[in-house]
Simulated assay, not measured.
Amino acid sequence: MAKKMVKVSVILPVFNGEKTLENTIKSLIYQTLNEIEIIAINDGSSDDSSTILQKYADRDSRLKVIDQPNHGVSFSRNKGIASASGEYVFFIDSDDWIDRDTLEKMYRFAKQKQLAFVACGHEEKNSTKMRTEKIEKQNAVLNNSKLYFEYFDALFFQSACAKLFKLNQIQVKFDEQMQLGEDLAFTYSFVNRQSVLGFCGEVVYHVVNQNPSSLSKKYVNNLGSSLEKQYRIWREFNDNHHGFAEEYQRNMIPFGMYMLMTYFSNLNRYDCPLTYRQKLDHARLFYDQHSDWATKGSKLSLNKASIFEKVAYLIIPTGNVGLILTTFLLKEKIRRLKFFVGRFRK
Rank of each mutant, 00 (worst) to 15 (best):
K166W: 06
I135E: 04
A154N: 03
E136M: 12
F157T: 08
S159A: 11
F165H: 00
Y151F: 09
Y148G: 03
Q138D: 14
T128L: 07
S145F: 06
L184F: 15
L155H: 03
T132A: 04
F149Q: 01
T128E: 10
I170G: 03
S159N: 10
R131T: 09
L184E: 10
F165Y: 07
Q158H: 10
Q179F: 15
K129T: 06
L184Y: 14
L142T: 01
A160M: 14
L180Y: 08
F165N: 00
F149R: 00
F157D: 02
F149N: 01
K146N: 06
A185Y: 15
A160P: 02
S145K: 00
L142E: 01
A162L: 04
K129H: 06
L142C: 02
A154S: 06
K146F: 10
C161T: 14
L167R: 09
F174W: 12
K173W: 14
R131Y: 10
E176P: 01
F186N: 00
S159D: 09
N168P: 03
C161A: 10
D153Y: 07
N168Q: 11
T187K: 02
N126C: 05
F174V: 13
L155P: 05
L155D: 02
E133L: 11
V141P: 00
F157Y: 10
Y148F: 12
N168I: 15
V172L: 03
D153E: 07
Y188N: 03
L155R: 02
S127K: 09
M178C: 09
D153T: 08
D183H: 07
N168Y: 12
N144I: 01
D183R: 04
N168D: 15
E123G: 11
A160T: 06
E176T: 13
E133S: 10
N143S: 05
K173D: 10
I135L: 08
D175V: 05
Q177A: 08
Q158T: 15
I170V: 06
I170P: 01
E124L: 11
R131V: 11
E150W: 04
L180S: 06
N144Y: 04
N168A: 07
N139I: 06
G181P: 14
K129E: 04
Q158E: 15
F186C: 02
K146H: 07
F156T: 11
M130L: 12
L142D: 00
F156E: 11
E123N: 11
S145R: 00
K137E: 08
E123K: 10
N143K: 03
A154W: 00
T187G: 04
F186I: 03
K163L: 07
A154M: 06
T128V: 13
K134T: 14
L184S: 06
T132W: 05
L180M: 12
E136G: 07
K134D: 08
Q158R: 07
Y148A: 04
G181F: 12
L180V: 13
T132Y: 06
Y151C: 01
K134M: 13
K173T: 10
T132E: 06
Q179D: 15
Y188M: 13
N144L: 01
F157R: 01
L180D: 02
L142M: 05
E133R: 05
K137M: 13
A140P: 00
S159L: 14
K163W: 02
K163S: 02
